[in-house]
Design a protein around this nucleic acid. Structure first.
Length: 428
RNA sequence: GUGGUUGUAGCUCAAAGGUGGAGCGUCCGUCUGUGGCACGGAAGGUUGCGGGUUCGAGUCCCGUCAGCCACCCCA
């Protein structure tokens, strides 16, 4: 292994990808504010047990994708593969249900899963997620989904669709699991070895079995929601329609995590490869209690920021970090003054850049052009003599392109601010 | 984790076992104080890494690492 390369599945993210990710994060934060969600920052590392007991010990994430290791104190710890267990843990640990504040959280953070990398799948990736704790009503389910769709719409992404389903509560699900397990045992030969081994622990996952799962899911007994769950699901659908959210019902949508109850949903894109999920989530009414907290219903989702970035990178134009002014030194006698001007501009809130004052004027002008700056500011012997500087409008200046004038140094700040305001107005 | 495929300059790619190139980009110059255009020149390579076959390997073989694609799985 070459120590001077990134590990498999890990990557450096450079501009403009970083700009797109920042744009997504900022857009998300605007929406979160509209819906009154507060930020929570949780550790990247937790006890392995946390994920085993929440995400679930039969899930692929926990069984084969976690970065787990022992620390110096012989604790078995893991890099977080998802955010919900950490947020739930924080809620219980700090007794946030007693704080009197609304328990609506958002988080933005990197997650880790040791999967085989491919398009849209990295071993370290960014999740943006929300968790709404303490509200059992269908209105909470609806709000989180509406928020998600509003966020996606605002980012400008195209070609995505939402699917929802209900997995039922503990009661109707347990009943169904027994029925299903009975059926699966009678049809065990149609399952792969892997599924045969796990049907006892989690029969629902067998319906995802690729060998005969799709047929099984048609033929197998169907989940019958109890009356409460059925009403809840109907209400969620009704509220989504009121909010004019487009969605489809997908009866075979089974989220891969153990803690989901009732509503589950997923947003997919037809424009992605086989990693077509942009965001997914659902209700998890039993999780908080299972961690020793009070019985607290909850619902949430997570969005793959990297995947969203892939989708919008081509149809979005971001303001670059091009400087407003590019400072050029025409000869050695003005070196010091040029550097002073550069600092002065920046100290007064005008973005400025330079290349190398010791290079030729031509070379520095070329750099100025490439930088995307609006104005080239030239300092030389002549300007120094007059206590002035020359400013030249480059191609990026909308208006006075190519124009050049000499202005006194003591008017520089005021003048450039006026010019830049005018130029920006034109650009807008 | 399984299968397929690809690794040559910063990028996109040539080189059919016989001296590793081009385009774009970068830098310098033509232009004694002025960018874009044009022209001239320069820099930049352990051909991913390690073995093997051969008189000779970027090219063939084996291994390994990495990228991409699909499976799987997810967000």
């Amino acid at each position: 292994m070459d120590p001077f390369r990134t590990l498999r599945g890990f990557r450096d993210i450079l501009s403009p990808e970083t700009d797109i990710l920042s744009y997504i994060e900022n857009t998300a934060k605007e929406i979160f504010k509209l819906y009154a969600y507060n930020e929570i920052r949780i550790p990247s590392v937790e006890m392995t047990e946390l994920f085993v007991k929440s995400t679930g010990d039969t899930t692929d994430i926990v069984e084969k994708e976690m970065y787990s290791f022992n620390d110096a104190g012989k604790r078995n710890i893991s890099l977080r593969p998802e955010g919900t267990p950490g947020v739930a843990r924080a809620f219980v640990q700090h007794k946030l249900n007693l704080s009197g504040k609304n328990s609506k959280f958002f988080y933005i953070g990197n997650m880790f899963r040791a999967e085989r990398p491919q398009a849209g799948r990295f071993r370290e990736f960014e999740h943006i997620g929300i968790e709404y704790l303490g509200n059992p009503s269908a209105s909470a389910d609806a709000e989180t989904i509406i928020l998600l769709m509003a966020l996606l719409k605002k980012t400008g992404v195209k070609d995505y669709f939402a699917e929802i389903n209900s997995l039922g509560c503990g009661d109707c699900r347990e009943k169904y699991k027994k029925e299903l397990l009975e059926y699966l045992k009678n049809n065990a030969s149609r399952l792969c070895e892997w599924c045969q081994n796990r049907i006892e622990k989690n029969p629902l996952r067998a319906l995802d079995c690729k060998i005969d799962g799709s047929k099984l899911s048609i033929e197998a007994p169907k989940l019958k929601l109890c009356e409460d769950c059925s009403l809840h699901f109907e209400k969620v659908k009704e509220l989504l329609k009121i909010a004019e959210i487009d969605f489809k019902i997908n009866k075979s949508l089974v989220r891969g995590l153990d803690y989901y109850t009732r509503t589950v949903f997923e947003v997919k894109s037809s424009a992605l490869g086989s990693q077509n999920a942009i965001a997914a989530g659902g209700r998890y009414d039993k999780l908080i209690k299972s961690m020793g907290g009070q019985d607290t219903p909850a619902v949430g989702w997570a969005l793959g920021a990297d995947r969203l970035a892939m989708l919008i990178k081509d149809n979005i134009s971001l303001k670059s970090n091009a400087p407003d002014i590019f400072v050029i030194c025409a000869d050695k006698s003005s070196f010091t003054e040029s550097f002073k001007i550069l600092n002065n501009l920046r100290n007064n809130g005008i973005s400025a850049d330079f290349s190398n004052f010791e290079l030729s004027l031509r070379s520095q002008m070329r750099s100025a052009d490439k930088s995307g700056a609006t104005i080239a500011l030239i300092m030389g012997e002549e300007e120094l003599k007059n206590s002035s500087c020359s400013i030249k409008f480059l191609k990026h200046a909308e208006d006075d392109k190519g124009k050049q004038e000499q202005i006194p140094l003591n008017e520089l700040l005021e003048k450039t601010k006026n010019i830049l305001n005018t130029e920006n107005r034109i650009n807008d």
